[in-house]
Design a protein around this nucleic acid. Structure first.
Lengths: 215, 215
DNA sequence: TCGATAACCTAACCTCGTTACGTTGGAGCA
DNA sequence: TGCTCCAACGTAACGAGGTTAGGTTATCGA
């Protein structure tokens, strides 16, 4: 059941100031394992050490513990989200449409990277290192662009009266979009619609709602 | 770090047909531990066995493995959700208001029981036993009442034209409400509003949206 | 009374995260 | 040139946890 490949010969020791090279190799191997296995538990310290060609204790020279390693892998991996979202809404002029495009891109990225997503946004807060407690996404370019887009909607008069707090509305929109992302990967056996426009409809409904405004 | 209390003396062996009593005791102890510690990992087979007054292998007479035990604990615990939601919307006549009340009750229950909620709805699908793969909530009284309430909204002409699939709309509403539930417990350090009406506003916005329907 | 069987226990295996501590080899300096 | 120091590892082991193979004992029915 072990993921560890048969150890690929002991790797030579690095020269004196070059210890960080091992750190990068550990991160690369751990990321590959996390994406291939889709399971945090399968990425054991021993398996990573074995794949890199090093003994388990050597990992601890570069990472405080396993959690520290796993979260840094995920944080690195998530840097691609910013690009993905930026590309998704490029060329979309209407601010509400742009908001929907951002939401769709977010869901796509999460579903495509389930285990990193689960680790970053679905684990108990006490297992996450201090630096990932709250403001992770809240300070990221992705969230910034979301807040900016919401502000554009407000400024363009596209939102209902009373909805003027761009930051709070962004939190709410994020929560709703996160809900589908989360459920899609946790309950793939649910009877989800197979309509290709499903994601667009979901994000748009997050914005326009389902209930009529008149009575 | 072990949660196991100092073993409370070996308990006497049960008479011949009464093995299920131990099963119930195991479930009760495991549920208590899960709620007290708020951590699935803290509920070890060894700790449960110790607290019950039995040896670890005896657990396996009644549960296939640890996951089987943990999920049954959560499923039992979630039976209280049906009552909670039924009470929440009792006396609410307007179907859309009732929908919002259901959503609020759901979030409240999830936030009040974070670890069971996380195990049931936020874990990898491959760790969940077969019986909890998809239709868990989809077949529960809670979800049934949600679908019925959505249908009432449709029948009363309270939804926008085109939104007629009660089951699909219920899935979407559940996903959105789950999103906030999930984020609230995973990222408590986020700058959530401390407005007491926050939950009501969130669920209502799930229904009415934020964007204007006219241009 | 006696065999069958349910209800356990003993002892152990294996994996995993983690730590204490030893080893080695090269960079820099006398 | 030789020596020292420290970064970059390795060795060995601890202890916790899930799980299993196989034994033991008490109770029930015949």
């Amino acid at each position: 059941m072990t993921t560890a490949a048969t150890s690929p010969s002991r790797r030579p020791r690095l020269p004196k100031g070059e210890g960080r090279q091992l750190r990068d190799q550990i991160l690369a191997v751990a990321e590959r394992m996390l994406l291939e296995t889709g399971s945090q538990e399968a990425v054991s310290i021993r398996a990573v050490a074995d794949a890199v060609g090093v003994t388990p204790p050597s990992i601890y020279r570069h990472f405080a513990d396993k959690n520290d390693l796993i979260f840094e892998v995920c944080a690195r991996h998530f840097s691609a989200l910013d690009d993905h979202m930026a590309r998704a809404c490029a060329g979309v002029d209407d601010p509400v449409d742009k908001l929907a495009a951002l939401g769709r891109a977010y869901i796509e990225f999460g579903v495509a990277n389930p285990e990193p997503y689960r680790i970053m946004f679905m684990t108990r807060p006490d297992v996450a290192p201090q630096q990932y407690q709250g403001h992770v996404l809240a300070g990221s370019p992705s969230f910034d662009s979301l807040v900016q887009c919401v502000q554009d909607c407000i400024d363009a008069g596209r939102f209902r009266p009373g909805y003027t707090d761009a930051y709070g509305l962004s939190l709410g929109f994020w929560a709703r979009v996160h809900g589908l992302t989360s459920l899609l990967m946790s309950k793939p056996g649910m009877p989800w619609p197979d309509d290709p426009d499903f994601l667009d409809q979901f994000t748009e409904t997050c914005l326009y709602g389902v209930a009529r405004h008149d009575r």
